[in-house]
Every structure is written in structure tokens, then in C-alpha cells.
């Protein structure tokens, strides 16, 4: 709204534009992020210890000079929780003063640069929690006419791939309902990168019910608050049918679930003591009376090093079976 008023000028408005400029010749990367509904938006993408630089252009309505008490740009990291609506928690706040109090007679361009910024948390948009980074440009003026404009950007951090074997033991488990259904399932790892493939097997040890189908759900659980005030919210992000029809004893059903098509994030543990995001694979068996039998299993998600993360690079030249 401020912008709107600012834009309209109301006599003395300024408009503010911000261009993210690549530091030291590297291209500005962008991230496609889901917005409300089915829309997506493109945001500049940074990662920890990046330098965030750019140009800010402050323009006045031509022929009308604008007095101000200073122009500054802030880099903010904010956590917003649904439970604490309206009181976002700033965990990062850096500021650069761009201009001392003065007048703007003609459009003016300021360059800025935040070097080596500590962007330790990833940007996140969930149901209950959001973690956002933004640049806030403030043209301070008299009461009620200060112009503030926010420019959001996105942060993703990568992890190195975990040590191959020791770091990722497979998930193996035998579950069942006595005298009714016994299965053994196995996911090849407990830790997956976002572009990874879950490979596994369901082994039917005993089947006395008529199953209709079986699917794997990917679930995300956000936890906000702590202790007794903790609040959980779960969301099913994907359903992937892996079996049609009723198996008999001794059958084993293969699982191969590509994670890349889904909008997943890494697992976040206790982000700034405010929230956590966890992922689960939920194995669901549905019988002919539509009763559901399920077993939920947490998996760790992480984002692999950017070099591997880039969508354009083929993972391996060989067959991509995900195994």
C-alpha cells in the first residue's frame, strides 16, 4: 500500500526500483517458486556467503523534487509463523545507507553490496511457517510519507553428499496386523537428495485381506513452537501408486519413486528455534472395502551441491534407474 501511495505520488511520491546485479561477473540465478494457487514466480537466488549486490534507482515525479532524510537498504531474514501472525521474527538484519538526507531532483541510482552474507537458512514457504529474505529500500521522509519497498529474493543452501554407506543406512522394517497382513518394506536410504530416487521393495509375508492397491505418499510435517505449545501441521505432497491389484504371499513389489517432480525442500531441523520441517514416506495399502493400512517413515531430504543440482546437467550418462 505504501508503494501504491508512493507510486501515485500523492504530490511528492518517489518510485523505487531495484536490480540485483551479479557480483564479479557471475550470472544472477533465479529460482522458480510456487506462489499462491498454481502460480509461480521467479526470484533471484542466492546461497550462503554470497555477495548480494545491485542497483537501486530512486525516481521522483519529473519536475518535482523530493526531500528526504536519507535512503537506506536493509537485508532482512524473517521468520513468519501462522501462530504469531503479524510479528515476524527477524533473524538477520543488515543495513547500508545509500544517501544522507537531501533532495532528489532527478532519478538517482545507488549501488549497494552486502558481502559474504550469512544466509544460513533456506527460504521456505509452508503452511504455517515462512522464512523469507528481502531487501528493503527505505526513503525516509516526513511522517506518513516515508517510502518503503521490499524486494524478495530466494536462498537455497546445498549440502555435500553424505558419505555413501555409513551415512545412509537403508530403512528396513517389518510391519503387520496379526494374522491378517504382514509386510516387510525397504527403502534403499534414509537420506535423499531432492533429485534422488527412492528405490525399494515391499515384500508380502502374509496377505489375508483383499488389497485393491498400494501407494506411497510423500508427507511434509511442519512443527512450530516447542514443548507443550508445539503445533504440527501435515500436508500430503504426492501420491504415487506402486501396486495395482491384490498380491499373494511371497510377492515383492518394486518401488521407484522419483523425487524430482515434486516441490520438496530439504528437511529443516529447528530453524532458528522457530520451526522444523520433516518429510515422511507413507506407505498406504487400501483394501477392497477402502480401508487403509499405512506405515509412515521419516526420510531426510537434503539439497545436493549446486553443481549437481542444476537441472540442465544430466545426472549420469547411463541408465537413470535411480538405483
Amino acid at each position: 500500500m505504501k508503494n501504491l501511495f508512493g507510486g501515485l505520488g500523492l504530490g511528492q511520491g518517489v518510485s523505487v526500483q531495484l536490480d540485483f546485479k551479479p557480483a564479479e561477473g557471475q550470472a544472477v540465478r533465479t529460482a522458480t517458486v510456487k506462489a499462491k494457487g498454481n502460480e509461480t514466480e521467479q526470484l533471484p537466488l542466492y546461497t550462503n556467503r554470497d555477495t548480494i549486490a545491485g542497483e537501486i534507482k530512486v525516481s521522483n515525479v519529473p519536475g518535482k523534487k523530493v526531500e528526504h532524510q536519507g535512503v537506506k537498504v536493509q537485508l532482512l531474514g524473517v521468520i513468519e509463523l501462522a501462530t504469531e501472525r503479524g510479528t515476524p521474527h527477524e533473524f538477520l538484519a543488515l543495513v547500508r545507507d545509500l544517501a544522507p538526507p537531501g533532495e532528489i531532483i532527478a532519478p538517482q541510482t545507488f549501488t549497494f553490496e552486502f558481502n559474504n552474507v550469512d544466509l544460513q537458512y533456506d527460504s521456505y514457504r509452508g503452511l504455517q511457517a515462512r522464512l523469507r529474505y528481502l531487501l528493503r529500500v527505505t526513503v525516509t521522509r516526513g511522517y506518513g510519507t516515508t517510502t518503503v519497498k521490499d524486494f524478495y529474493f530466494w536462498v537455497r543452501n546445498c549440502e555435500a553428499a553424505p558419505a555413501e554407506v555409513a551415512g545412509q543406512p537403508p530403512i528396513k522394517m517389518e510391519v503387520g496386523i496379526e494374522e491378517c497382513l504382514h509386510i516387510e518394506f525397504e527403502y534403499n536410504k534414509n537420506k535423499y537428495s531432492l533429485k534422488d530416487t527412492v528405490v525399494g521393495k515391499i515384500y508380502f509375508l502374509l496377505v489375508r485381506i483383499k488389497l485393491k492397491y498400494m501407494e506411497i505418499e510423500i508427507k511434509r510435517r511442519e512443527t512450530t513452537g516447542a514443548g507443550s505449545a508445539a503445533k504440527n501441521e501435515s500436508e500430503t505432497l504426492a501420491k504415487y501408486e506402486i501396486m495395482d491389484g491384490a498380491p499373494v504371499r511371497g510377492e515383492s513389489i518394486p518401488i521407484r519413486l522419483f523425487l524430482s517432480p515434486y516441490d520438496l525442500t530439504p528437511t529443516y531441523k529447528n530453524v532458528h528455534n522457530k520451526f522444523s520441517v520433516k518429510y515422511y514416506l507413507n506407505l498406504v495399502l487400501v483394501d477392497e472395502e477402502d480401508r487403509r493400512y499405512f506405515k509412515q517413515q521419516e526420510i531426510q531430504l537434503y539439497r545436493l551441491d549446486t553443481a549437481c543440482d542444476a537441472a540442465s546437467a544430466p545426472a549420469t550418462p547411463s541408465l537413470r534407474l535411480g538405483g
Binding site: M243, D244, P247, S252, I253, P254, R256
Partner: peptide
Amino acid sequence: VEMCKGVQHPTRG
């Protein structure tokens, strides 16, 4: 041939 195990319904399979 392995993946096709996903269909356990006789006719469909």
C-alpha cells in the same frame, strides 16, 4: 520385467 510386478491384478497384469 521387474517393474511390471507393480500390477498384481491378474487380467490387467
